[in-house]
Every structure is written in C-alpha cells, then in structure tokens.
C-alpha cells in the first residue's frame, strides 16, 4: 500500500515569489526572513522523499464560478496547466504545467465516493494559486505528479468545519488504501484570519491576531476538539470575511490525525499571519 510520508498545511501568499525575487533594494524588510522560513519549511517535505503529492486548495473563481459550483472536486487528468491571466497580472506568478497521476486520481475518487464523499471531478482542470503557491514554496522544481483536490471556501453555503475534518480523515484512508509502493505527501493551503475586499483588509496585522494565535496553538497541539468547539462559519466571518480558508487547515488536520504537529513556524506579515505546519505519521517519523 502507498505510504503517507508527510502532511503539510500552510497559508498561501500569492506575493511570496514577487516579494523575494524583486531587486533586493526594493524588497520589503521581512523578505529575507520570509525566504529563510520558506526554505526551512521546504526541507520538511524534501527529507521525506515523496513520489506523489496530493494537493488540497480552493479555486478563487479562476476555473470555478457560480454557474456550476462544486463543494469538493478532484482533478483527474494527465497534466494540469496552471496560473490564470489575472494571477499573472496581480501577483506576477508565472505559468506552470503540473504532471498528473490519473491512476491515483481515479483510485482516490472511487475510494472517496465509497466513503460517501460524492466528489465532483474535472478532466480538464486549470490550477490556480492555491495549489501553485505551495509548489513555489515547498517544491519549486515542480518535479512530482499531483492529485489536485479543490474545496469550496468561497461561495456559501459552505460545508461545516466537521465535514472538512471528516473529509481529511477520508482522504487519509484513501491514501493509505492506494495499492502502490509510492510515497505520498499531502499538502494543503488555506488562511488564518483574512479580510479581502472589506474594511479590515491590508492592515498592519491580520484582521484577528487573537484568532491567529489561538489557531496556531490548536494546530500545534492537533486539538480538533477545541477547533470544532470554537470555530463555525459565523465565528470565522467575525475574524475576517475570507477567514473560511481556515477550513482547509481543519481538513489537513484530518489527514494528519488529531496529533501534535512535528514542525510549526509562523511569520507576522503585513495584513496576514503566515503559518507553516508539518506532521509526520508516527510510525514513519524520521
């Protein structure tokens, strides 16, 4: 059976590449520290020598729109184009082509259906920055095939936090059941407190630093009970109108299981708290 070798959950910041590659005299003061933290985080994946990446993100109305809006979707294609025109324009993110793994996508889709997660699927999926940002940060060589999974964190009504956690658990079971000797890493991105297009956007900190601090502790301790007792759609909206990206962290904790993280780091950037977590399955911890 396939072996899950690492679970990574992080924020995704579309300006990382631009912020750390512009001429040094124009870079923000934190750029060097940001780059150091990202490179250290990248090593938490590299040391596990993965063969395939199961990647969880959320389309930002790039491929998916309100005329046809799935809650959960899996990509099943031999290859995936990535980066839309408006992402190049706004963030300076280059275009990529990601290799797919149709066999594993197909297996995961069937297995998740068998676990009562009725996934939508796409045979022609163009990937946006929710999945390209982690390629840029933790696997910039883009040398591994991916199984992309998209969740809806954007267009209400959204699935519950508990549903996201249970989906993570189901994804973990599907990976564990995949008949292959491949080493699989699961990588998901979301947000802590975040405001976009509202009165609390682009402040010195994220819109709710107290939530950010608390959320990092919950994830550090793998405390799913505290998360489910304290976080719902309303509380997330109070912490910032785009805070629902935290649902993907809850999902990733489901993949890892309710355990303390093996690696935790964070960085207070203008308007957002960046956070980086890695879990190693206990039986394979290096």
């Amino acid at each position: 059976m396939a072996q899950l070798v690492a679970t990574l959950a992080s924020t995704h910041h579309p300006f990382y590449l631009k912020a750390t590659t512009m001429p040094p005299e124009q870079q923000m003061p934190q750029a060097a520290e940001w780059k150091r933290k990202i490179e250290a985080y990248r090593e938490t994946l590299a040391r596990t020598k993965p063969d395939i990446l199961v990647m969880i993100g959320s389309d930002h109305f790039h491929q998916i729109f309100l005329d046809n809006c799935p809650q959960f979707l899996i990509g099943k294609a031999p290859r995936y184009d990535a980066t839309f025109y408006n992402e190049e324009r706004e963030f300076g993110i280059p275009k990529y082509v990601l290799e797919g793994d149709e066999d594993m996508s197909g297996f995961m889709h069937q297995n998740l259906m068998d676990q009562d997660f009725d996934f939508a699927f796409s045979n022609e999926l163009k990937i946006d920055h929710s999945i390209i940002c982690p390629i840029i940060t933790v696997r910039p060589d883009n040398d591994l095939p991916v199984v992309p999974i998209y969740t809806n964190i954007f267009a209400p009504p959204l699935p519950s936090p508990k549903r996201f956690y249970n989906l993570g658990r189901a994804i973990r079971k599907a990976i564990d059941a995949y008949p292959s000797d491949k080493r699989v890493a699961a990588i998901g991105t979301g947000h802590l407190s975040l405001e976009l297009g509202g009165p609390r956007q682009f402040m010195e900190t994220g819109p709710d630093p107290e939530f950010d601090r608390q959320a990092i502790e919950w994830l550090r301790n793998g405390d799913i009970d505290a998360i489910l007792a304290n976080v719902d759609h309303e509380s997330m909206a109070k912490s910032g109108n785009a805070t629902h990206g935290f649902l993907n962290f809850i999902l990733m904790l489901g993949v890892a299981g309710p355990e303390g993280a093996d690696y935790v780091d964070n960085l207070d950037l203008f308007h957002t708290m960046e956070a980086y977590f890695t879990w190693y399955p206990k039986e394979t911890a290096a």
Binding site: F61, N86, R89, E90, F154, L196, G197, G198, Q201, A242
Partner: peptide, 19 residues
C-alpha cells in the same frame, strides 16, 4: 460591497484597474 457582490471579485477587479 453593500449589494453583496463577492468580496474577492470586487477587490481583484478594481485592483486591476486602480492599483
């Protein structure tokens, strides 16, 4: 915003024009 247009679309389009 006050009509409930999606915050992400409302921000990203006008950033494209005014940033």
């Amino acid at each position: 915003f006050e009509m409930g247009a999606h915050f992400f679309l409302n921000l990203t389009l006008f950033i494209g024009i005014y940033d």
